[in-house]
């Protein structure tokens, strides 16, 4: 009783909650503006501009940085994602299998490939496999090698994510499907896995973004002008012009991929939320 009275009309006039909120917000804006001002007045803008923002260097990178570089980055990413998704789903199902040998194999694979640097895997795909099977070739050339090399690592991460997603689907969903006479495999494919995928959309986006950036490792496979991707293309320009502007352009082009991706995912999440 007394505390309520104090708050409402105490001897010292306190700020209302709304006034307090407003003041806190003002302070936050002030700090933000101050930081911007310090950066703006202390940086040596002329040197920065000469080193990183030369319009002529930037202009010389087009259209090469889009075609073929951006397209190749997209192709590498897509190939690795599809391969990783398929293999990751298989691995997730193996980890959930009743057959102990499957669980062991899947666990071993996941532990191994989560521990190996992507660069090492790419080397193995690029040079190990051709040596081991001299009369066979990975289909698709560099595209196939990238899908395999990045996808094998991605599959290890995706498997754990997908497994968690499958476990998050209520048990009753599988039971209802089995009760309708669906065999286990059909129930998984038609009922459980689609719902698991909805659950794992956000972590999968991070996986795609990671893959997008990992495509910059393609250089270890020895790429040609036809299948060069953004980073290699830009660093070649950087070396030729002795100027860092290509890095800025490359960064912007990567954002062209990742920003719409977040948008698409946000929309998918909204739709999934509506269906829930």
């Amino acid at each position: 009783m007394t505390t309520v009275d104090d708050a409402a009309a105490g001897p010292k006039r306190r700020l209302t909650r709304r006034q307090r909120t407003r003041i806190i917000r003002l302070v936050q804006y002030a700090v933000f503006v101050a930081v911007l001002a310090v950066v703006a007045f202390t940086a040596d803008w002329h040197t920065v501009q000469q080193g990183f923002f030369r319009p002529d260097v930037a202009r010389s990178m087009f259209p090469g940085v889009l075609v073929p570089a951006l397209l190749n980055t997209l192709a590498f990413t897509l190939g690795a994602f599809v391969f990783g998704l398929v293999l990751g789903t298989v691995l997730a199902l193996m980890r959930l299998s009743e057959v102990r040998a499957y669980r062991w194999v899947a666990t071993g694979y996941i532990e191994l490939f989560r521990g190996l640097p992507v660069l090492v895997v790419l080397f193995l795909v690029g040079y190990g496999i051709p040596n081991a099977f001299p009369d066979r070739e990975i289909p698709g050339g560099v595209y196939g090698q990238m899908a395999l090399g990045l996808g094998m690592t991605a599959a290890a991460y995706m498997a754990e994510t997908i497994r968690a997603g499958i476990l998050a689907v209520p048990k009753g969903q599988l039971e209802a499907a089995r009760t309708l006479g669906m065999p286990y495999g059909r129930a998984m494919v038609s009922i459980v896995i689609p719902q698991a995928f909805r659950i794992v959309i956000p972590p999968m986006t991070n996986q795609i973004i990671t893959l997008t950036k990992d495509t910059s490792l393609a250089y270890v496979l020895g790429v040609t002008a036809a299948n060069v991707e953004i980073t290699k293309f830009s660093s070649d320009v950087l070396n030729a012009r002795v100027n860092a502007t290509p890095l800025i352009v490359a960064a912007l082009v990567y954002l062209v991929i990742t920003l719409p991706l977040s948008q698409v995912v946000r929309r998918m999440e909204l739709r999934a939320a509506r269906a829930r």
């Binding site: 209520p170 209802a176 089995r178 009760t179 006479g181 669906m182 065999p183 009922i191 719902q195």
Partner: peptide, 18 residues
């Protein structure tokens, strides 16, 4: 599975496919 097709089951928690 063939036998289960002939047996309907209704659960407390509905278990509709979301």
């Amino acid at each position: 599975d063939a036998l289960r097709r002939r047996i309907g089951m209704v659960f407390q928690q509905f278990n509709l496919f979301g």
